[in-house]
Amino acid sequence: MDAEKTGNNTGLLWKLFTAPIGKNNPITVLILGICSALAVTVKLESALVMGLAVTVVTGFSSLIVSSLRTTISPRIRIIVQLVVVATLVIIVDQVLRAYAYNASKQLSIFVGLIITNCIIMGRIEAFALANKPWLSLIDGLGNGFGYGMILVIVAFIRELFGSGTLLGYQLIPDGWYISNGGFYENNGLMILPPAALIVVGIIIWVQRSFYKTN
């Protein structure tokens, strides 16, 4: 029976982790966390760092709140959650400033704004308060990962077509550009926020029709 239980557990954990990446994706299905997805996806590097930062915060805030869930006084429940999330965000911000200074400069205010990311409070309220710490951690990490993945896809498209680079490395040969007598020009729309909205919209469309046919 023990073996069966562990088997079930692994399956459950895997499901918990992958659901938010695919059919329960926080951005494309639940439409949460859109604001930062628009803001930090001009460059692939900032999207990667942001995805990682949000994953750390969702994972650990779910873990901590879930560990505290039986002790929290119902009257200050939201305040306790906010304090936990805010603390984690400040720590992440400080670590980025020390170890990834350029990325933290590019992300500027959006690291601090992770606090207001609906995904985090959403997962705490909907999952961590009712489940064991270990499961909550996996759920949080999965959601952060699902968020980060969409960010990376959007940033990939926007950086490639908007700046002709990926992670700062130029991919479009210099000679292709009109200014050098070629035929190509970067798409200026791609570096502006509306482009993120359009790209996210297309991803939502593709994903929804994929899950409908499956």
Binding site: T71, Q94, Y99
Partner: peptide
């Protein structure tokens, strides 16, 4: 209970934050 809980939480959080800040300051 609420007051004690809140106080304990704030003390723990404040300690964690000051330690992080002190530890990373020179690098930043």
């Amino acid at each position: 209970y609420t007051f004690l809980y809140a106080t304990a939480l704030v003390v723990v959080v404040a300690t964690a934050l000051s330690l992080t800040s002190m530890g990373l300051k020179s690098r930043q």
